[in-house]
Design a protein around this nucleic acid. Sequence first.
RNA 1: GCCCACAUAGCUCAGGGGCAGAGCACUUCCUUGGUAAGGAAGAGGUCCCCGGUUCAAAUCCGGGUGUGGGCUCCA
Length: 641
Amino acid sequence: MLTIKLPDGSEKHFEKPTNGIEIAESIGENLAKAAVAIEIDGKQHDLSDEISNDAMVSIITLNSDAGLEIMRHTLTAQVLARAVKNLYPNSKLAIGPTVTDGFYYDFEIDKQLSIDDLPKIEEEMKKIIKQESKIIKSFHSKKDAISLFKKKSENYKIEIIKNSDQEGNFQIYQQGDSDFIDLCRGPHLRSLKQIGSFKLTKISGAYWKGNAENQMLQRIYGTAWLNNKDLRKHLTKLEEAEKRDHRKLAKQMDLFHFQEEAPGAVFWHPKGWNLFQKLIDYMRKKQTDAGYHEVNTPELMDRSLWEASGHWESFGENMFTSDSGDGRKYAIKPMNCPGHVQVFKQGITSYRDLPYRLCEFGKVHRYEPSGSLHGMLRVRAFTQDDAHIFCTPEQITDETISVCNLILDIYKDFGFKEIIIKYADRPKVRVGEDHIWDEAENALISALEKTGLDYVHNPGEGAFYGPKLEFVLRDAIGRDWQCGTHQVDLNLPARLDATYVGEDGQKHTPVLLHRAMFGSLERFIGILIEHHAGNLPLWLSPLPVKVLTITSKADNYAKEVIKQLNNAGIQAECDLRNEKISYKVREHSLSKVPVLFAVGHKEIEEETVAIRRLGSKEQITVKLNEAIQDLQKEIKAPSAK
RNA sequence: GCCCACAUAGCUCAGGGGCAGAGCACUUCCUUGGUAAGGAAGAGGUCCCCGGUUCAAAUCCGGGUGUGGGCUCCA
């Protein structure tokens, strides 16, 4: 007698070994129809898998996240893979997992695919799905599995099997009587009948096993959904995301540009630079309040300093260097830390001065691979809101807690509500003894625990000199961006001979905490633009108000309005051009000016302005002095209110 | 760095082995208006760069640079 427990607590009994299909049928006809797989004691299985022991099970239906993912998996591993094999018989299968909203499959194909080949592949996939084949699974020993795939010259599958630590039970899936086979951990749909709506979206190269040393394979991406409606909804969402693209919006808003002679470096236009300065003003105040001292250190320093710090060895590939007339080799700083250590060494001698917090809006240059550059989100020259806290080991906890609080506080001001903290420990390439790393990691993790904040572990992703916390923010459309960072460093101060005199009269090496909150200002601005879809809040807008004249008779009044706005500390410009009001409204709405004042005969007489807000079609007419007072309140940074 | 695609006026883009195109922006003129494009005229080009093929290359081929989508890497 076999007892099967269901999620609702009820039990089913079977005389002999059973399977998911029987269990589903025993519960109800509709469930059996909708079932795609089964979870047995927490692990996903095919419905056909035999159950011979007591178990907790739950039927997975198409109409669930897990079911949808199984459908996507079947679509890529069975349908896309088979379609490509049909069209390009010499191709070899690598892997085909699901990803957010879809799936991909990596192939080795002798013909180089282009985006134009996708419709043809889609068509072949639809043909395969129409056959509504049943999906059949068989189990094989390691030896059998290898010989099966040898016959098909599926080298990648063979490599996967060979590298696997399991000896038997290799699952091979097949559709009806087709000779297509694929190795897969499953589970898969029972039949291709259950496949919903899909679209192949893009094509790219991808390294075998994600290793840049390995062969480049061809990857086909797709998205798949339960039905056409969901698919279309997803495609619309992608279009919406495209509209938020900071590169596109920045052009409309006239913030900055890039050009060929300076790859990965920003040409800031007046409005963009205004926004940049607003962020600096805001952060400068926050940091001063939190006890930081702002400094500025050289962009160019002699190679010997970078050798001493360890950058030359561990970060050298990312550094720009410069030769000079005096025959010395300089490096353009990729980080501000060595410079800050020099400042520390000039002044601080006593433990009484610790913690000593130095900050700098330091512009750093890093040679990033050309292929990784991406608008403002990945550049080669960027400005960090960088700070280095020199402290005693005992002070690590308190300093870490206040950094965490400060960062979370700041993100809130910018409208980010969801923040994920990651703890990253020692990487493969690093400086310093392991026992130093033990110490640094323990200090950081115990400080983090004390904050009581949730975090996730990100193994091997620390900086080369110490473990770090990464602060990841989630934007308005659910994308994650890593911005802030906080690192414990027990290596650099010693390498650069930084010391202080302790209470005991002896020399000690300080602990160095590296932290940045925006991370890179360039990147943060890119994220802000996308998060707000260009509609920046008033306090960040480079031009909060534009005054538009309806007739040239209003020119003088408009200038008077500007004067009063400026006197009240509100940046504003006027548009006196010989154009219709609708034309001016359209133009400034497209360039994302948050507040438009229209002035004509009526406004002159009544000393009012007609206000129109970005994104609204409504206008309200308000006395000029009241409008200014209201704006003055609204334009303050959130934390200054 | 690797794979694929793309590069034409300030911007968005069409075209394509034989005179370089459109819309918007710009300049001038008309229009003085009431909330997302008023009208007319004009000016604007090394068709990314360097080679090659050809009677002829913006167009075809090769190389380079940059950009985009991925991979790798990362703030």
